[in-house]
């Protein structure tokens, strides 16, 4: 039953993505992008990744869409959506996808409890994190304790991105001031 739900949701996701290619209207592209994020959040719930699901729903579907819509409002509504070099792009993408699909042929099946990804460090997180860190949510335990430095790096990235955005958006005002002089 769960398999059928996952296959149905993944197919919906693929249809949404294909629809984005053929859209001519920028607003519908943005809205379909938002639907795409929300659908992937639902898939994360079915795949047991609840923390990822609510982050994706809040950040991916929420904040991203707000960012896209505000950038769309600033850049103007008369965007022309054109595609060029369709054939070259299609061939490149098909070759890449074919190579990757060939590579999946020796991957362990989804849900296999004996797959290499399940048998190394994950077992320790599941068995020990309750007594070592003392909170029931393993994802939080790994994020904030075992891999705290990763999270510190993430904060550094977000901070750098914020500075970059501010610099890019404020630079224009200086140019305007120069022109007024």
């Amino acid at each position: 039953m769960e398999d059928i739900i996952i296959i149905f949701l993944l197919s919906l996701l693929a249809i949404t993505a294909i629809a984005i290619i053929f859209m001519r209207n920028m607003l519908s592209v943005i809205m379909l992008g938002s639907i795409y994020s929300l659908l992937s959040a639902v898939i994360f719930v079915v795949l047991d990744a609840v923390d990822v699901a609510f982050t994706e729903a809040a950040v991916g579907a929420g904040i991203s869409s707000v960012l896209f819509l505000s950038a769309f409002a600033v850049t103007g509504k008369r965007q022309v959506l054109k595609q060029k070099n369709k054939l070259i792009a299609f061939v490149t993408v098909s070759l890449t996808a074919a190579a990757l699909i060939y590579a999946t042929s020796d991957m362990p099946y989804v849900g296999d409890p004996n797959a290499p990804v399940q048998t190394h460090v994950a077992a320790r997180y599941i068995e020990q994190s309750g007594s070592e860190v003392g909170i029931p949510n393993m994802v939080t335990a790994v994020l904030a304790s075992y891999r705290g430095f990763d999270t510190l790096g993430e904060v550094a990235v977000v901070f750098t991105a914020m500075i970059a955005v501010l610099l890019l958006l404020l630079r224009r005002e200086e140019e305007e001031l120069d022109r007024e002089k």
């Binding site: 047991d48 990744a49 409890p113 990804v117 994950a122 599941i126 393993m138 994802v139 790994v142 990763d150």
Partner: peptide, 9 residues
């Protein structure tokens, strides 16, 4: 039985 928390992180 739990799913692997590491990819989630």
């Amino acid at each position: 039985a739990y799913s692997n928390p590491l990819p989630h992180v």
